[in-house]
Simulated assay, not measured.
Amino acid sequence: MNLAIDIGNTLAKLAIIDGGQVVDFLKTEQIDTAYIEKLLKANPGIDAAVIVSSRDTDEELERFLEQRMKRFLRFDQNVPVPIVNRYATPGTLGADRLAAAVGANTIYPNSDILIVDFGTAITIDVVSGGEFLGGNITPGAAIRFKALHHFTKKLPLCSLNDNPTELFGNTSVSAIECGVVNGIVYEIEGYIRDLQRKYSDLRIIFTGGDSNFFAKRLKNTIFATYDLVAYGLNRILEYNAE
Rank of each mutant, 00 (worst) to 15 (best):
M1P: 05
N2P: 07
A4Y: 11
I5C: 05
D6W: 06
N9F: 13
T10P: 09
L11C: 01
A12V: 02
A12Q: 08
D18M: 04
F25H: 15
F25L: 15
E29K: 15
I31Y: 01
A34W: 01
Y35D: 10
Y35H: 15
I36E: 01
E37P: 11
L40Q: 07
A42H: 02
P44H: 03
D47R: 03
A48L: 02
A48P: 03
A48E: 12
V50N: 12
I51N: 14
V52G: 15
V52W: 03
S54D: 05
D56A: 12
L61N: 08
E62L: 07
R63I: 00
R63N: 09
F64Q: 09
L65A: 06
M69T: 05
K70G: 13
K70R: 11
K70P: 03
F75G: 09
F75Q: 10
F75T: 06
Q77H: 13
N78F: 14
V79N: 12
P80M: 05
V81T: 06
I83H: 01
I83Y: 03
V84K: 15
Y87T: 00
A88N: 02
T89F: 14
P90Y: 00
G91W: 03
T92D: 06
G94S: 00
G94M: 00
D96N: 05
L98D: 02
V102Q: 00
V102H: 10
G103W: 04
G103H: 09
T106S: 15
T106C: 13
Y108A: 10
A121G: 09
T123Q: 07
T123V: 04
I124N: 04
D125T: 05
V126N: 15
G129D: 05
G130W: 09
E131V: 04
L133N: 09
G135V: 02
N136K: 01
I137P: 07
G140Q: 12
A141H: 08
F145L: 08
K146L: 07
H150I: 00
F151E: 12
F151S: 06
F151R: 11
K153M: 09
K154I: 08
C158K: 15
L160T: 04
L160Q: 07
N163R: 13
P164D: 04
T165P: 02
E166Q: 14
F168T: 03
G169C: 08
N170T: 12
T171F: 05
S172T: 14
S172K: 07
V173E: 15
A175W: 06
I176V: 10
E177I: 02
E177W: 07
G179P: 06
G179T: 02
G183C: 05
I184L: 11
V185P: 01
V185N: 00
Y186I: 03
I188V: 14
I192F: 00
D194N: 09
Q196I: 00
R197Y: 07
Y199Q: 03
S200G: 06
S200A: 12
D201Y: 12
I204F: 15
F206E: 07
G209N: 01
G209K: 03
S211L: 04
F213S: 06
F214M: 14
R217Q: 08
K219P: 03
T221D: 14
A224E: 08
A224R: 06
T225P: 02
D227M: 03
A230S: 14
A230M: 13
G232E: 01
L233H: 09
I236W: 09
L237I: 08
E238I: 15
N240A: 10
A241C: 10
A241Y: 07
A241G: 08
